[in-house]
Simulated scan of single mutants.
Amino acid sequence: MSRFPETIAAVGIPLAWGNLMLPGLGLGVRGRTAANAGFATAYAVAFHGVPNWRSAKGFRYGLVSASLVAAGYGVALSIPSVRKRMHEFDDRGPGVSTVEWVAVHIPIGTVYSEEMIFRATLEPLLDNTFGSRAGSVLGALTFGLWHIHPARAAGDSVPVAIAATAAGGGAFGWLRRRTGSVTAPALLHLAINVGGALAPRVARLIGTART
């Protein structure tokens, strides 16, 4: 438990950044992406994060996971009732083009930033301090709490957002532990978020083409 104070600080700092400090800056989409990436890099350096981006095992697991997610989106778009529900989803990338949103802001502002903070840095600290079982739970919960402000800003249910993102964080953490790399969870994370951004647009295009 000698690293307990450092670990508690490592938990509190990103929660304060994501839910209080970053929103308080009042930045636009591009500013938030740059600030998040800068914070994530500094946080990983300060707490000795080890992403191991070049892991071959991480690439293999990540590509398989991402492929399954892509297939899931494809199946969902092929079902008329589900496609209609997707058609009604809000655009979560206001102020920038779809290309910029999926090519810059999701990969850098979300995936890179969150994987550097949580899977590369915080979860190894939690594992070393509390053990892998408790560390996985605490890491997933902290990842869920990181999404409080985004849920409020989007008008979503905060408890649902915490539960859903904590579940996702649990899956990402499992991949990191399985492969020893953040590449696998990053690729899965990217597939989920890019698919979530593109699927409603594809659903609307299909709906327009069929009217």
Rank of each mutant, 00 (worst) to 15 (best):
F4Y: 10
T7H: 12
T7Y: 15
G12H: 07
L15W: 01
N19A: 09
L25S: 00
G26H: 08
G28S: 05
V29D: 05
R30C: 02
G31W: 08
A35L: 14
F39M: 11
A40R: 04
Y61H: 15
S65V: 13
V69R: 14
A71Y: 02
A71N: 03
Y73W: 14
L77D: 11
I79W: 06
P80T: 03
R83D: 09
M86E: 07
R92T: 07
V102W: 12
H105R: 03
I106E: 08
I108N: 05
S113L: 10
E115R: 15
T121Y: 01
L122W: 00
G131N: 11
S132F: 04
A134N: 07
S136I: 09
L138T: 05
L141Y: 11
F143R: 13
W146N: 14
H147V: 10
H149Q: 14
P150E: 03
R152G: 02
R152C: 01
A153C: 04
I162T: 13
A167K: 11
W174R: 01
R177D: 04
R177G: 06
T179C: 01
A186T: 11
L190E: 14
I192E: 10
N193G: 06
G195H: 11
G195A: 10
L198H: 07
P200H: 04
R201W: 08
T211H: 12
